[in-house]
């Protein structure tokens, strides 16, 4: 996993599949202004599928790896 993550750090993705998330997570992401089509930059991964730091609209947030996988969908 480390190998894949190294290569996508600082890469940009377009957020998708927010609908697939559970309601509270979806609601919170929406409140943070993150929606399908938002630009997402990967800042950092934590080992063993730990949280991922992403940047959206100049704001850094940490999300669980599982959520991150869904948000970037097929682009990974």
């Amino acid at each position: 996993m480390q190998l894949i993550s190294e290569s996508i750090i600082n890469q940009h993705f377009s957020v998708c599949n927010i609908e697939q998330l559970d309601t509270p997570t979806k609601q919170r992401l929406h409140s943070l202004g993150i929606h399908d089509g938002s630009n997402l930059t990967v800042i950092r991964f934590f080992p063993m599928h730990g949280p991922v730091i992403i940047e959206v609209d100049h704001q850094q947030i940490g999300v669980r790896y599982k959520v991150f996988r869904i948000l970037v969908g097929g682009q990974l």
Partner: peptide
């Protein structure tokens, strides 16, 4: 639980 979203 997956609701783990922290602002930095």
């Amino acid at each position: 639980s997956t609701v783990f979203i922290v602002e930095l």
